[in-house]
Design a protein around this nucleic acid. Sequence first.
DNA 1: CCGGATCCGAATCGATACTG
DNA 2: CAGTATCGATTCGGATCCGG
Lengths: 234, 234
Amino acid sequence: MAARSYGQYCGVTSAVELIGERWAMLIVRDLLVGPRRYTDLKLGLPRIPTNILSTRLKELQEGGVIRRVPLLNCGLVYELTPYGQALEPIMLALGRWGFQTMGEPEEGDVVTRDSLTMALRTAFRADDSADAEYELHVGDVALRASVQDGELRVAQLAPNAPPAGGQLPPGEADAVIVAGPGIRRLIAGEISPSEALAQDVLAVVRGEETWLDSFADTFHIAPLSAELNARSMT
Amino acid sequence: MAARSYGQYCGVTSAVELIGERWAMLIVRDLLVGPRRYTDLKLGLPRIPTNILSTRLKELQEGGVIRRVPLLNCGLVYELTPYGQALEPIMLALGRWGFQTMGEPEEGDVVTRDSLTMALRTAFRADDSADAEYELHVGDVALRASVQDGELRVAQLAPNAPPAGGQLPPGEADAVIVAGPGIRRLIAGEISPSEALAQDVLAVVRGEETWLDSFADTFHIAPLSAELNARSMT
DNA sequence: CCGGATCCGAATCGATACTG
DNA sequence: CAGTATCGATTCGGATCCGG
């Protein structure tokens, strides 16, 4: 038996041996957005040591979770296998669960394109969604979220694109929202759209501010219950 | 920022910082079955070092996932907080996912009461279930699975209880199934109930063998697809 | 620039022994 | 029963380097 094996014959154990090592889940999270090259992953995970990244990529490949795909012109990308893609609902549920205890960002925390993309998918409520096109800026990450018929599609815009400036995807967004990490409070329902505007948590730099109500209905993660604060109780 | 922080402001990251450390998920898995004392956890995780167990218990407590509850007479148990219990669907989904790649047990792998209990919950198909009482033995783990109106309840029987010997829960089981780890192949649908019997993967030591068909319908984890074998493809 | 490999100190993990 | 203490073996993190 491998020295570092958990030594149990069990589905959960197998799963944890495949994707439980440090950084592995975050690599999978980013690959759930789309295929990524080594350098993309490194940029999206600024604090991962490069030797750990390459080790994890090998392990995930060995475990059948990801695949190495050479590109036609040059370079290569890593992508999830069908088996790896089956992690999507689990990752979304885990993101929803972890969202509850995010609190405020620590000094030095970053928001990356892929993590924000997954966060939007995590918070998406198909049933409460109204069709709309949002352009969302958080820090220097810019996304375009298209909601149509209860389906969400998220596209990543060029970084540092001036809000409302680009005409990259055809047509203008209904609303361009510029926010900071405090947008968490809106999605958590801790503050209402009008409070968010009043407290400068975010701004609607183009489009009617009423789109913010639709946005808050569409992207929402309800708190589990009040007992969440029952922490550190002996 | 903590040295070992992932440095990202994201729900998945928060979740992984709470339950992503080594052994943490397996502790949560066992606590999803019910409150457990320190010694129970140690027995259920034979390979965990005791210092790691106590460190994880402190961390999970600090994170609001578990709670320490002193018992009236003596001793104490750890139990999940409501927030921790919210991990149940995630754990079941993860168990289902990991089940696909379990293969055959490694030398030295064990099956514990709690892991088998969770495995049954993982494999349970409410829609295809017929009411029944099963007594299941795998290795020296003995469980009583009661299926009624699409609901599953699993009770753990005394270890080393002679199959069909005990009258612990009121009434006799419809079928007493004695199996080894090969029962995975039945649950995965790799073999049929009759093949399982013919190949001595398991035996029905009391009750009609036809109960095994109900069992196989009730507890089943379908393979994702054929491409699962597309491993290690460069 | 892409896709890593190598080296090394620091932190964590695993195994065992020991204690209130 | 419910953990600490200790210590060698691994792994991780940070930095540098390298071939294409």
